Simulated assay, not measured.
Amino acid sequence: MKHVIQAALEAGQEIMKIYDTDFDVEYKEDESPLTIADQRSHDVIKARLQQHTPEIPILSEEGQHLPYEERKEWKEFWLVDPIDGTKEFIKKNGEFTVNIALVRNGKPVSGVIYAPALDTLYVGEEGKGAYKVQSVLGESEERALEPLPLSRQDTQTIRVVASRSHMSDETEAFISELEDQYDRVETVSAGSSLKLCLIAEGVADYYPRYAPTMEWDTGAGQAIVECSGGIVNVAEEETPLLYNKPDLLNPWFVASR
């Protein structure tokens, strides 16, 4: 995993070079914002992964999206989102991430998420658990590896990851059901794949996602959640999210612990 972590850290450093400037924003065909930082991050990650694991293909949001006829034979592949939360990047609120997952037989088995503006790293590896590191690039005495989930003082309050300003009817119904079951239900908010990290940390109990996401948005986060003992299932089903589907769009899902 060292080379994967290094790839994420190097990509994060490239991103920050642009984040700290007055950058230009372009728009993709679907009108989602694209900055030069996306491409630089992609290039760094691709080069690092190909250097260490040239035999493993890469599926990146900013790379070439091969048709399913070519992808369907993949037993394992790297799933990459060079910048998750581009809107957060443009708003300069710091809540954007670099996501790298290793998917094997449709299941994300390891994941690395790095939030460069927060200098915070999350790692999950099947069979080895998950952990969080803050001040990754700081002085060594500042760094502390924290196994996930973290200990939590208030276990009486149920916390749900949800947008306070843009909540779907389905999410409101989900929260309403919880309020019927528990005395105290609160919502917490975060950008990008940091939402899944809140579940992995144990800071939140549920993350209902009744809105579109793509495979690269969730692969690394799902690996970290599951390696921390949590669950990421298709909404209304007892089946986990699967990857390398003919359509790379995810179904609705609920992450929980």
Rank of each mutant, 00 (worst) to 15 (best):
V4I: 15
Q6N: 14
M16I: 15
D20S: 07
E26P: 01
D30H: 03
D30C: 08
E31H: 05
I36P: 03
Q39D: 06
R40A: 13
H42A: 04
H42M: 11
K46Q: 14
A47H: 12
R48F: 06
R48K: 15
Q51T: 08
E55A: 12
E55T: 09
E55H: 12
E55P: 07
I56L: 01
S60K: 08
E61Y: 02
E61V: 05
E62A: 11
H65V: 12
L66W: 03
E69H: 03
E70W: 04
E70L: 12
E70M: 10
R71Y: 09
W74Q: 10
L79C: 15
V80A: 01
I83C: 13
D84W: 00
G85F: 05
E88Q: 08
K92L: 12
E95A: 04
A101Q: 03
R104M: 14
K107D: 15
V109W: 02
P116Q: 05
L118H: 07
D119G: 04
G124N: 14
G124S: 13
E125H: 01
E126K: 15
A130I: 09
K132P: 02
S135L: 09
G138C: 06
E139L: 08
L145R: 14
P147S: 07
P149I: 10
L150E: 12
S151D: 14
R152G: 09
Q153W: 09
D154C: 02
T155A: 10
V160H: 06
S168H: 03
A173V: 07
I175L: 10
E179A: 10
E179L: 02
Q181M: 08
D183L: 10
R184Q: 14
S193N: 01
L196A: 03
I199M: 04
A200C: 01
G202R: 02
D205E: 14
Y206W: 03
Y207A: 02
R209P: 01
W216S: 00
D217Q: 00
G221I: 07
C227G: 00
I231Y: 11
N233C: 11
N233A: 07
P240Y: 12
L248T: 03
W252F: 12
F253V: 08
A255I: 03
